[in-house]
């Protein structure tokens, strides 16, 4: 469990982060969402002490992180940034090995770990490992950045706009991959994004920040159904609220017995995807893979709390 306790960072009179307290359960994904200048990146960097807080502190499994030298703390916390920040003079394998080497792992253990991570991120270890970062595509660099952050099995993974530099198609793929990896490894993730759709797609809980303060900290469905303030309401985007709400529900949970025309939909598709298909096909109901169907009225009912 990670605890942020009354964290504040003041620059003169400006309160970049103002008395923020959050608790992050082990193995969960928390997204910090806010407009630019809301203090979300500063808050993230207070956690691994790239910025030292004016007041307050962070606990990692109950241990006050101020008890450690900052560089030792950072070796226990993975860190992914938007421009990936790969070391251009090192190969991919050497980049991924950064923290294990700092921790003095054996050569054999490092090599095995590098190979394991490259495979996990669907990169061919033999082909990609010996390359230099400038020989990779943007999507590959981003994945290597994630692999490097995960290398030493960190207790917490911090991600600062990790997909901001990717085009929409790659971003969707990267989000799905991250979610799959997170389920496999059970890593605790604290992620910063300005994209509410990304936060809803990835996280178990969302912290909405504005002017250095957390306005609401709740699961995505709660944020959509009951935004605590006008700012949260605006950020959620009332124009797309129903679709975002639908995107939280797997269509399989709305299934009923019966048959329907047309190609069946995978049961793990979201209700938003199902409604989209239904509108486009102009039908009343959709067949699901593995039997059963979902009707228009069931989908419409699921679109609001």
């Amino acid at each position: 469990m990670i605890g942020l306790n009354h964290l504040s960072k003041h620059y003169g009179d400006t309160k970049a982060v103002d008395d923020v307290s959050l608790t992050i359960d082990k193995g969960s994904v928390v997204a910090i969402v806010g407009t630019s200048g809301s203090g979300k990146s500063t808050l993230l960097r207070l956690v691994n002490r790239l910025i030292e807080p004016t007041s307050g502190h962070v606990t990692l499994d109950g241990q006050d992180t101020r008890a450690l030298p900052a560089f030792e703390l950072r070796r226990r916390i993975g860190y992914v940034i938007q421009d990936h920040g790969l070391f251009p003079h090192w190969t991919v394998a050497r980049n991924i090995a950064t923290v294990p080497r700092l921790l003095g792992w054996s050569k054999a253990r490092i090599e095995a770990r590098v190979e394991e991570l490259l495979t996990l991120l669907s990169l061919d270890p033999a082909a990609i490992g010996p390359r230099f970062p400038h020989q990779l595509s943007g999507g590959q660099m981003q994945r290597v950045g994630v692999a490097r952050a995960l290398a030493a099995e960190p207790e917490l993974l911090l991600m600062d706009e990790p997909f901001g530099a990717l085009d929409p198609v790659l971003r969707g793929k990267a989000q799905a991959d991250l979610r799959a990896i997170q389920r496999t490894l059970g890593t605790t993730i604290l992620l910063v994004t300005h994209d509410m759709a990304e936060a809803i797609a990835l996280s178990d809980r969302i912290a909405v920040m504005r002017a250095g303060r957390v306005e609401q900290f709740a699961p995505p469905a709660e944020i959509l159904a009951r935004p605590a303030t006008d700012f949260v309401r605006a950020l959620v985007g009332e124009g797309e609220r129903a679709f975002r709400y639908l995107s939280l529900t797997p269509v399989g949970s709305l299934a009923e017995a019966g048959a329907a025309e047309g190609a069946p939909l995978p049961a793990d598709a979201t209700a938003a995807e199902a409604l989209n298909a239904l509108i486009w096909r102009g039908t009343e109901s959709l067949a699901l893979e593995g039997g059963g169907r979902v009707t228009r009225s069931a989908l419409l009912r699921a679109g609001h709390p």
Binding site: F71, L73, H84, T98, R148, L158
Partner: peptide
């Protein structure tokens, strides 16, 4: 030096000398 590389080096836990 690219700021992202310097930031990553700090974030990975390299000491100033490293």
């Amino acid at each position: 030096l690219p700021p992202s590389v310097v930031e990553a080096a700090r974030g990975m836990g390299l000491t100033p000398r490293q």
